[in-house]
Lab assay of single mutants.
Amino acid sequence: DDVELRDGDWRVELKDADEEILRAVEEAIKNGASEQELRELAERLIR
């Protein structure tokens, strides 16, 4: 699993992620995405 989400800690570690993925995830976090939404976003972007 390349995506690590810690309970109560919104730092997201994406291994080997490019800047576009990181920006998309950071934007989702700023917009108040839930953990499930972040997982789905990350899975779509990593593929």
Rank of each mutant, 00 (worst) to 15 (best):
L22S: 03
E43P: 01
I46Y: 09
D18E: 07
A42R: 05
S34I: 02
D1A: 12
I21H: 02
E26H: 05
D1W: 13
A28N: 00
E43T: 14
R47A: 04
V25H: 00
G8S: 09
I29R: 05
V3H: 11
I46E: 01
R39Q: 10
A17C: 03
R44L: 06
L45Y: 05
R6A: 11
L41D: 00
R11S: 06
R23W: 12
E40Q: 13
L41K: 00
K30L: 09
I46V: 09
E4C: 05
E35A: 11
R23G: 02
A28Y: 06
E13W: 15
L41H: 00
E26D: 05
L22I: 10
E4K: 11
L14P: 01
G32M: 02
L45I: 04
V25M: 13
E26P: 00
S34Y: 01
V25S: 00
E43I: 15
D7Q: 07
E4P: 08
V3K: 12
G8T: 13
V12C: 03
I21L: 07
V12D: 11
V3W: 14
E37V: 04
V12W: 13
K15F: 10
D9N: 09
E40I: 13
K30R: 12
D16F: 13
Q36R: 10
R44M: 09
R11W: 14
E19Q: 11
W10N: 02
E20T: 13
E13Y: 15
D2R: 10
E20Y: 15
A33P: 00
I29H: 09
E26F: 15
V25R: 00
E27I: 10
L38M: 04
A33M: 13
A17D: 03
D16T: 08
L22F: 08
R6C: 09
W10E: 02
R47S: 12
R47G: 11
L22K: 09
D7E: 05
R11L: 11
R6N: 14
K15S: 08
E20S: 13
L45W: 04
D18I: 06
A24R: 10
E35P: 06
V25A: 00
D1E: 14
Q36E: 09
N31P: 00
A42I: 15
E37I: 03
D9E: 02
R47Y: 12
V12R: 11
Q36A: 13
K30T: 03
A33T: 04
E20Q: 12
E26Y: 15
L38D: 00
I46N: 03
E35C: 03
L38Y: 03
D9T: 04
A24I: 15
D7T: 10
D7G: 10
L5Y: 09
S34D: 06
R11N: 05
I46C: 03
L14F: 10
N31C: 02
E40D: 08
K30W: 09
E13G: 12
L14T: 02
V12Y: 09
E43N: 13
D16N: 12
I21N: 01
A24G: 01
E13H: 15
R23H: 06
A24P: 00
E13A: 14
Q36K: 10
R44C: 04
E37W: 05
L22M: 11
A17S: 05
I46R: 13
D16Q: 08
I29S: 13
E20N: 13
L14M: 06
E35D: 10
R23P: 00
E35F: 08
A42N: 01
N31E: 06
A33H: 04
D2P: 11
D9L: 04
E37H: 04
A24M: 15
R39G: 01
L22N: 04
K30A: 13
E26K: 09
D1G: 10
A33S: 05
A42D: 00
R6Y: 11
K30E: 05
R11V: 06
D1C: 06
R6G: 14
G32P: 00
R6H: 06
R23A: 09
E26C: 08
R39K: 11
E43W: 15
L41A: 00
E4V: 04
E43G: 13
V3T: 13
A24L: 12
D1K: 13
W10A: 03
V3S: 11
A24Q: 14
E27L: 14
G32W: 02
E26W: 15
R47V: 06
G8F: 15
D7N: 11
L38S: 02
V25N: 00
G8I: 14
S34K: 04
L22W: 15
N31W: 11
G32F: 02
E13C: 15
V3M: 12
L14V: 04
G32E: 01
E27A: 07
A24T: 07
I21Y: 03
E43H: 15
R47N: 15
L38H: 00
D16G: 13
E43Q: 15
E35R: 06
N31I: 05
V25T: 01
V25P: 00
E19R: 09
D2N: 14
R39V: 04
E35W: 13
A28H: 03
S34P: 02
E26L: 15
V25W: 07
L41Q: 00
L5V: 12
D18F: 07
N31T: 06
I29K: 10
Q36I: 11
R47W: 08
W10M: 03
L5E: 14
V25C: 01
D18P: 15
V3N: 14
E26G: 09
I29A: 12
W10V: 03
D18Y: 08
E43D: 08
D18W: 06
E35H: 09
D7A: 07
S34R: 02
K15P: 02
D2H: 12
A42Y: 15
E4I: 12
R11Q: 06
D18M: 03
G8W: 15
R47L: 14
D9A: 08
Q36M: 14
K30I: 07
D9M: 05
R44P: 00
L5M: 12
D7C: 06
R39A: 05
A33N: 02
I29Q: 11
L5D: 10
D1Y: 12
R11P: 05
L5K: 11
V25E: 00
A42V: 15
I29T: 07
S34L: 03
A33K: 06
A24V: 13
S34A: 03
D7I: 11
D7W: 10
G32A: 01
G8M: 14
A17F: 14
R47T: 09
V12G: 08
L5F: 14
W10P: 02
V25Q: 00
L14D: 02
D2I: 13
E20G: 14
V12A: 12
K15V: 11
E35Y: 12
L14C: 02
L5T: 11
I21K: 01
W10R: 02
E40V: 11
E40L: 13
I29G: 06
E37S: 03
N31H: 08
E40Y: 10
V12L: 12
A28T: 00
L38P: 00
E13N: 15
E27P: 00
K15A: 08
R23V: 04
Q36C: 04
D16A: 08
R47Q: 15
E13T: 14
A24Y: 08
E40R: 12
S34H: 02
R11I: 08
R11M: 13
V3C: 03
R11D: 03
K30V: 07
R11A: 07
A17N: 03
A24D: 01
R47H: 12
A17H: 07
L5Q: 10
E27C: 09
I46L: 15
E19D: 11
E37R: 02
E19K: 07
E40M: 10
R39I: 06
E27V: 09
G8K: 13
D1N: 11
Q36F: 09
E40C: 06
E43V: 13
R23L: 08
A28M: 06
R6K: 08
G8N: 13
A24N: 03
D1S: 14
D18K: 10
D16C: 15
E27W: 13
D16M: 09
E19M: 08
I46D: 02
L38A: 14
K15I: 11
D7Y: 08
E19F: 07
L45C: 02
E20W: 15
R11T: 04
V3A: 07
R44D: 04
D9R: 04
E43Y: 14
E37M: 08
A33Y: 14
G32Y: 01
R6E: 11
R6Q: 13
L41S: 00
S34F: 01
K15R: 11
R23N: 05
N31D: 05
D9G: 08
D9K: 06
E37T: 06
R44K: 08
E19P: 15
G8Y: 14
R23F: 09
A28W: 05
R23K: 13
E35N: 06
A17P: 02
E19A: 08
L14G: 01
E19W: 13
L5S: 11
V3Q: 10
E20L: 12
S34V: 02
R47F: 13
R23M: 08
E37C: 04
G8P: 12
E26V: 10
I29Y: 15
E37F: 08
R39T: 02
A42S: 05
R44Y: 10
E20I: 10
E20K: 10
A42W: 15
D2V: 11
K30P: 00
A33D: 01
K15N: 07
D1Q: 12
E19H: 09
D16S: 08
K30G: 05
D2Y: 10
D16I: 10
L41I: 05
R11C: 06
E43R: 15
G8Q: 06
R6V: 07
Q36S: 09
R47E: 07
A28Q: 01
I21P: 00
R11H: 03
D18V: 09
G32C: 01
I21E: 01
Q36L: 10
S34E: 02
E40A: 14
S34C: 01
E37G: 02
E40F: 10
E35Q: 04
K15T: 07
I46A: 05
Q36D: 11
N31G: 08
E37N: 03
V25I: 14
D1T: 05
I21A: 03
R47C: 07
D9V: 03
E40N: 08
V12M: 09
A42L: 14
L22R: 11
